[in-house]
């Protein structure tokens, strides 16, 4: 579990025309908190996640995890990618134990945990299958299991359910809620789906269009444990209306600055 602090983080890509992707982002994430970064596609929210993961460096500002500067990517920050990014040449089991193996953890220390994680995501019987044999939702469950096996301090999820059909997505959201309520890991969850953000998160950060900034932070006080039944409650609708208004104004702002 980890505390994440971003201070004046900015990112500029120096291509032929310099592109400012992120502009002075301030964000404090408490230990065990579930934060959703909500914004339109291409707004730079993935860039922010990549900085947290260590895949990219910030151009300005500081990004800290538990008080220390975020460095190279590592198993303390488990990343779940949009398209799962499993190794297609490894079986489900080999994918799940890849992390501990790379870190030189003795087999006896991770085998039980890996088996338990596979059971948690409901893929006990698919350990010897290859990713090509799985559906999109199953692949993403492997992607989650292989990260949880490493017992990361923070979970970074980049639109992990964005490519799934509506029904599978809901099942995955419920699964994530169950798992998270058990483990209480810090989660940063990038999405462009308002329902998803409200359903999962303790706090929704609405991001403005490029260059992205955090426009508003909206704490979600819905009681836990939550389920997809919450999607239809009046409180949920109220949050949704508030966030939609926020996103619309952010969108308008972006259009006037662009014009």
């Amino acid at each position: 579990m980890a505390e994440i602090t971003l201070r004046q983080v900015a990112k500029t890509y120096f291509s032929a025309v310099p592109v400012r992707a992120l502009d002075s982002v301030d964000l404090d994430i408490a230990e065990g908190e579930f934060v959703a970064l909500l914004g339109p596609s291409g707004c730079g929210k993935s860039t922010l996640l990549n900085i947290l993961a260590g895949f990219e460096g910030a151009s300005e500002g500081s990004a800290l995890i538990d008080g220390g500067a975020i460095g190279k990517p590592g198993p303390d920050r488990g990343v779940v990618f949009q398209e799962a990014a499993l190794f297609p040449w490894l079986t489900v089991w080999e994918n799940v134990v890849f992390g501990p193996k790379m870190q030189g953890v003795p087999r006896s220390d991770y085998e039980d945990r890996a088996r338990e994680m596979l059971a948690t995501v409901g893929l006990k019987d698919f350990a010897q299958s290859y990713p090509a044999q799985l559906s999109g939702g199953m692949r993403q469950r492997v992607g989650i299991a292989r990260v949880l096996v490493m017992q990361p301090r923070a979970l970074l999820m980049d639109e992990p359910f964005g490519a799934l059909d509506a029904q599978t997505r809901m099942a995955m959201q419920e699964l994530l809620l169950t798992v998270w309520e058990k483990l209480n890991t810090t989660v940063v969850f990038v999405t462009h789906d308002i329902d998803e953000a409200i359903l999962l998160a303790d706090r929704v950060c609405v991001m403005t269009a490029r260059p992205a900034r955090i426009g508003r932070e909206i704490p979600i006080a819905l009681p836990r444990p939550r389920s997809i039944d919450d999607l239809t409650t009046p409180e949920f609708t109220r949050y949704k209306a508030e966030i939609m208004a926020e996103m619309r104004s952010a969108h308008r702002q972006a259009e006037t600055t662009a014009a």
């Binding site: 993961a53 260590g54 895949f55 190279k72 990517p73 590592g74 198993p75 920050r77 488990g78 990343v79 990618f81 398209e83 990014a85 499993l86 190794f87 040449w89 890849f98 992390g99 790379m102 870190q103 292989r146 490493m150």
Partner: peptide, 26 residues
């Protein structure tokens, strides 16, 4: 695929592991 390399890095793979276990099979 870039995300495969990133995934391996995230899971603690070193330079040689990346070559042997990601780049070569890919």
């Amino acid at each position: 695929e870039r995300n495969l390399v990133r995934a391996a890095l995230m899971m603690g793979a070193g330079r040689f592991d990346i070559l042997r276990r990601v780049v070569l099979p890919a």
